[in-house]
Every structure is written in structure tokens, then in C-alpha cells.
């Protein structure tokens, strides 16, 4: 037995198992906090450099399309400004009708702004690292969104001043969704590389490309109405009971810099 323990690989195995036990009893929390606190400013710099590099390469690759894209986005912006005016009017009307019917007004959730300081992209372990943690009010399970109520994921692990986010594009992610235009319900699951797929859609349901996919609120993890994306392609196989649809994610995971954590404890 002594000879076996003296072998470096076996000794390493025992040390790792020992560390796993210590972690399970929460005894490694302090060293982890210290590590993340020390590493976070370097982490942020490395991530920002990566984002810059990504944008620079994107600029070189798509230089020709810049002018066209610019015109397209200007037009889109003008359209959206018009829609905002209509929505503000609808909101005002909604508030007035709620008051008339004595309905309780929905309390707005508190949003905690956080910066993304890292992204783990290796197989099976994809997630984001953000620079807010327990001392900022974060808890496990809180939903994380990007600007425009675009769903990013949920908090899985919280440290003192940082937290890990489980992305909706992770292959193990499952979210109860609703197609806004038709109220059709389904489950969206992640595929790698920012891909999402809706599964368990009845063959009879009318699904079209361009339709908006939002959270239904039925799973208890995410509130209703958070934007997941838009239907990109409907995959029909008549020999199967259900059909599928590919969804283009609303959140751009290749460029994500800032997120909001929804504090739903109010």
C-alpha cells in the first residue's frame, strides 16, 4: 500500500479526491474567492482584448458590407423608434385600464448590471463569468439578460465578487417557451455555437420563420416574456410525432460585454 501511495499519479489522485471533499463541505470557498478577486482585473483585460480582436477580424472580413449594413441599421432604427412610440402609448393605456379595473400593477424587477470578464468555451463546460457576486445581491438561479430583455442564461455558481452563468445555448439547457404570434408552446434547447432548437412542437402547429420566441414563465426559472430569439427554420419530418424549429438567438454570445441580472426577490 505504501509503495502504491508513493507513486506520483496515485498520490495526485488522492490529493484531487481530497480537494473534491473539501469543496463539497464548502472549505474551498475562501481560496476560490481570493483567486477570483485577484484574477478578475486580468481576466477583464484578457476578455476585452479578445472582444477587440474578434471585432477587428470581423471588420476586416466584412468591410465591403459595412456601408450596406449601416444603411440597413439606420432604417431599422427609424422603424424601431416608431414602434417605441406605439408601445409607450400601449403602456400608458395598459396602466390606465389596470387602474380602472383595480388590478395590481406589476412591480418592476431590479436589474443588477454586470460586466462579462470571461467565457468558458471548452466542451461540456460553456458558461460566462461576470464581475458581480454575492456581495452585490446575486443568488443562484437568477436570470441573466442582455440589453433589450434578451435572455442569456442563469446564475449557477456565486462567489463573493463574481459569478458563473449557465448559457441558454449550453446543450443541457432546457427552457419552456412561447411563440409570441401564435401562443404555441414548446421547449427550447441549446446547441453549441449560439444555436437553439425548439423541440416537441406538434405537427399541426403553425410555425413560420421570423416568429418571435419568448419565455413562457411555466418552468419557474425565467419570468414570462424574456426574448429568446426568432424562428430561423422549421424542420418537418412527417414520420415523427413532433417537429422542430431552429431559433436564431437574440443575444449575441460572440460579442457580449455587459449583462443584467434580474433580482426577482422583490
Amino acid at each position: 500500500m505504501k509503495k502504491l501511495i508513493r507513486k506520483p499519479a496515485v498520490l495526485t489522485l488522492f490529493i484531487i479526491i481530497g480537494l473534491i471533499f473539501l469543496n463539497n463541505y464548502g472549505l474551498l470557498e475562501k481560496p476560490k474567492e481570493i483567486f477570483f478577486r485577484l484574477a478578475s482585473s486580468f481576466q477583464k483585460t484578457a476578455y476585452r482584448s479578445g472582444l477587440w480582436l474578434n471585432d477587428f477580424i470581423g471588420l476586416l472580413k466584412h468591410q465591403e458590407r459595412l456601408n450596406e449594413e449601416n444603411i440597413y441599421f439606420l432604417e431599422e432604427n427609424q422603424k424601431l423608434e416608431g414602434i417605441i412610440v406605439e408601445l409607450k402609448e400601449a403602456e400608458r393605456e395598459n396602466k390606465f385600464l389596470r387602474q380602472q379595473l383595480n388590478l395590481e400593477e406589476k412591480e418592476p424587477s431590479r436589474l443588477i448590471l454586470a460586466e462579462v470578464i470571461g467565457q468558458n468555451s471548452v466542451n461540456f463546460g460553456q458558461g460566462l463569468l461576470i464581475n458581480k457576486g454575492r456581495k452585490d445581491g446575486l443568488e443562484e438561479g437568477m436570470a441573466v439578460i442582455a440589453v433589450g430583455n434578451r435572455l442569456v442564461g442563469r446564475i449557477t455558481r456565486v462567489f463573493d465578487s463574481s459569478a458563473q452563468v449557465f448559457l441558454i445555448t449550453h446543450p443541457n439547457s432546457r427552457i419552456n417557451i412561447l411563440i409570441q404570434e401564435t401562443e404555441v408552446k414548446g421547449i427550447v434547447k441549446g446547441e453549441s455555437d449560439s444555436g437553439l432548437i425548439i423541440d416537441w412542437l406538434d405537427q399541426k402547429e403553425e410555425i413560420k420563420t421570423g416568429q418571435t420566441v419568448v419565455t413562457s414563465g411555466l418552468d419557474g426559472f425565467f419570468q414570462k416574456g424574456l426574448l429568446i430569439g426568432w424562428v430561423e427554420e422549421v424542420i418537418v419530418n412527417q414520420s415523427q410525432v413532433f417537429k422542430k424549429a431552429k431559433v436564431k438567438s437574440a443575444a449575441d454570445f460572440k460579442r457580449i460585454e455587459r449583462v443584467f441580472v434580474i433580482d426577482s426577490r422583490l
Partner: peptide, 12 residues
């Protein structure tokens, strides 16, 4: 480890 989380996602 820091570069893994910071730069590697952009080297796909």
C-alpha cells in the same frame, strides 16, 4: 487559465 476564459472563446 485566465487566457482560456478571456481569449480562447474568440479562437474558435
Amino acid at each position: 487559465a485566465i487566457l482560456q476564459a478571456g481569449l480562447a472563446p474568440f479562437l474558435k
